[in-house]
Amino acid sequence: MAMSPRKRARLSRGIQYVVLVVLVLVAIALMDWGRIQEQFFNLDSARTMWPDVILIALKNTIIYTACGFGFGLLLGLVLALMRLSSVGPYRWLSTGFIEFFRGVPALVVFIALDIGISLAFPGYAVPGDKLGIATLALGLVGGAYMAETIRAGIQAVPKGQMEAARSLGMSHTRAMISIVIPQAFRIILPPLTNELILLTKDSSLVYVLGYTSAQVELTAFGRETLNQERNLTPLVAIALCYLLITIPLSIVVRRMEARSGRAR
């Protein structure tokens, strides 16, 4: 007896549900819950992290990310404008920079920056101590990624906007600042927020620069406590902290995308 396509689809869905439930049940039955609780949800271990995990580690992660993002945004804007410039060397410099910092692992960039600056310029320190160099490193990497997003946003602004602005007598720079860039940013707000989420996780690389107990960020703090406690609960704890930052941002992104999709 041949089944109608709709019945077949319903049967397939039903089978998938059953398979899913069976797999979950089997996993639950096979897992050693005692060990899992001891390894992943050990309240004593979690308690040793309080309140430093929030007051110091989470705070530092937020600060490193925010500063890196701020610097990266500015740098990304400059790079994007250079890419769009009519001056050849600006375009080549910008393209080279973007390709390099997007193509090399962020970890390598961090290490090279840290050691490289003190070797190349002895006696010179990037202003701002650890925060300064973390901002520089995160900003260089983040900026390279954001440059492309910003450039696309600027190019997405209809050409007529620039033409109208210039026909009113505005200079190219003035038209960019007042008319094109504000509109570009409205367009790229969702992908930029995604960049912020990615940068939050990249802030974990700051550990290679070295840190004091006051400068520690979430991942390094988690690893230190992991070594101390010899179970994985610290990692679960910092993972939750990261989600505390990234999930609200994701929600914001989705809301923004929905709103711009609805708007004319």
């Binding site: 209809p158 007529g160 033409e163 109208a164 210039r166 007598g169 509109q183």
Partner: peptide, 20 residues
């Protein structure tokens, strides 16, 4: 050019008003 353009008004087919 900017100074010259400020003395010529132009109106476009697509209006090109600044939406923001």
């Amino acid at each position: 050019v900017d100074a010259v353009r400020s003395r010529i008004g132009m109106v476009f087919q697509q209006f090109n008003l600044f939406p923001h």
